[in-house]
Design a protein around this nucleic acid. Structure first.
Lengths: 336, 336
DNA sequence: ATTAGCACTCTCACCTCGAGAGTGCTAACG
DNA sequence: CGTTAGCACTCTCGAGGTGAGAGTGCTAAT
């Protein structure tokens, strides 16, 4: 059972540990929070909290460290979110409005801003329609029998690939051909494009349509996720140790952001998901937590997330991830 | 003066140090290379090499470590390149032919292959024409007064940006407009596009042409350089120390590859440049060396480079960088 | 010019040891 | 019965000390 007092003590333990990264002792709790009980009483409570699995012991005579379960309780029950103050909002919006370039630059800046705001690794994915549809295809003459196919998707993604044409066509012929196929396809998804490809008599049309289908279905993690903050998170005291630092660098390099999104499921817009330690399924990342939110209009969506040690400042990171996601939603809305 | 024997000894010191990462002693040299002189003689020679600045001493009683100057002499005079054997060639070519996707995937795979082949960080830049020229522009209707401008460059780059149109145009009107501007521009470079923009009566044309000019001139490092091997190079013994490891991660994240290319100058196709330690001008990277080569047809060029500690296996890395660059040149030629 | 010999220097790994931080338990207290 | 003082016990951590080992640099002999 989690009495009220015990619960409050758990909150203090977590606040303290998050702030210092040092296992917290009964004394530290009494001294630094003006409790009216003795350290012995606190020790009794701590022992009970440990029995219930909310905290642990690195070794017999060290202070207490929160467990995944402890953090979970904290995030769901105890924590008071630290709102994004007006100044901070202004700073973030100001930085975002600096962007002169396109969407990419915007997304990558967002990752940087978020990373510095919460001292974690930040990940932002490019907005993407659930079911990808073609908006417009174009063919550009390259050389001889080679043409460049450029496909613009309904969500604004632009993709290209090369297509070999059996008989060389000049640019105006290519234009005509593209126009013809655009009319034929008119907002097709991948399946429809493949279907169309299979019913064509003309070899070139089949090739082009197949290539279009491939582009519609294509997933390119590298170009669709923007990431920053590796150096920042590695400053955290948990990485003062060589081995841990090396492991962290390795892990973060190999870390599969796609897997993360899939495991978290599509968070609803406005909602924030928190995955603590082992909760996100990846054992290799058991010491890491993830806070993520989706943004977009429900049709075309992207994701904003931060990745940090389980000893993360949830009070700050959760509202900030939520704020940035909502900001992205509205900016995206304004642009469209 | 660098007598023949002294020079040979320098070679041995470097071979030894490159292999072990341990400062090399007079004894190690005599034992491991069957020299017919005593350690004392070697010590005398080492003292003279040190006087001339080819090697140094971490502290009074440690072995010798090569200096930048020592490596430079080694690379230019002493070194025997380790050729890329037929097996290795086959493996590399085989891996490269696996690629199904586009140029990007190809470049990123190249970086990975090179990184594992030489145990360094590998950098590959996307081929790019010296003076960027437009090949074809296209406008796609998005929503209301917003259109997506897609520009294909002569070197195959595809770039997009949004353009606001004063009065909404439907897709076929946009097509016509694009066609008109394509005819007007016909392979223009940035200056010509700006020139054309300034002489237009129509506001929309001016906007579109200005946007095209911006796209032609745009440099996007993130999307034009492919990098791999961070984890690999960090395995090297020099990074067993926490502080060095952290510094290396920081540095490599912040490292400005563009600056590197600029400082190295445009290496001629077929030529390999080596920048050792402080030679590349960036003090922060004084412990790092760079081996780079250009590839392409002289018009449309890219760069291949590896980045590693000055204690790099130059014998392997130089021929491998050269080989990969020439491979890229011919593959690029075949595709075009 | 080469070399054996030797004194000297510096590092590194290892050990010990005591201080300090914390806990857990017990017995007493209101 | 919850709370608390007291105390024994455990474990870590840093300081200091030490000896072995690795290497050099010098000198004097060949």
């Amino acid at each position: 059972m989690l009495t009220e007092r015990r619960s409050a003590i758990l909150g203090l333990v977590i606040d303290e540990y998050v702030a210092t990264a040092i296992p917290v002792s009964s004394r530290a709790l009494v001294n630094r929070h003006g409790l009216n009980v003795s350290t012995a009483t606190i020790r009794n409570e701590l022992a009970l909290l440990e029995e219930d699995g909310y905290i642990t012991h690195p070794y017999t005579s060290a202070g207490r460290v929160p467990s995944d379960r402890g953090y979970r309780h904290y995030v769901e029950v105890l924590m008071a979110e630290e709102p994004v103050g007006p100044d901070e909002q202004r700073t973030i919006e100001h930085q975002l409005h600096q962007v002169r370039g396109g969407l990419d630059e915007w997304l990558s800046l967002t990752a940087t801003i978020l990373a510095t705001a919460v001292d974690c690794v930040a990940v932002v994915t490019r907005p993407r329609a659930e079911d990808a549809r073609l908006k417009h295809a174009q063919l550009v003459e390259l050389q001889g029998d080679l043409a460049l196919l450029v496909a613009v998707m309904a969500d604004g993604r632009v993709r290209q690939s090369m297509v070999t044409i059996t008989t060389p066509l000049n640019q105006s012929q290519l234009n005509a051909r593209a126009e013809q196929l655009n009319l034929l396809l008119g907002g097709a998804d991948r399946a429809a494009a493949l279907e169309a490809a299979s019913t064509q008599e003309d070899v070139n049309n089949t090739r082009i349509l197949t290539a279009i289908a491939a582009l519609i279905g294509e997933q390119r993690v590298a170009e669709e996720t923007y990431l920053d903050g590796l150096q920042i998170v590695l400053q955290q005291p948990e990485f003062h140790d060589v081995e841990r630092l090396r492991v962290a660098v390795d892990r973060l390099n190999a870390y599969d952001v796609r897997g993360l999104v899939e495991h978290a499921g599509a968070a609803d817009i406005g909602e924030t998901r928190v995955l603590i330690g082992e909760e996100h399924g990846d054992v290799a990342m058991r010491d890491w937590s993830v806070v993520l939110a989706s943004y977009g209009d429900g049709e075309t969506n992207g994701m904003v997330a931060v990745l940090g040690p389980t000893r993360m400042h949830y009070q700050r990171s959760i509202p900030r991830v939520r704020y940035v996601a909502s900001l992205m939603s509205s900016l995206l809305h304004d642009v469209r």
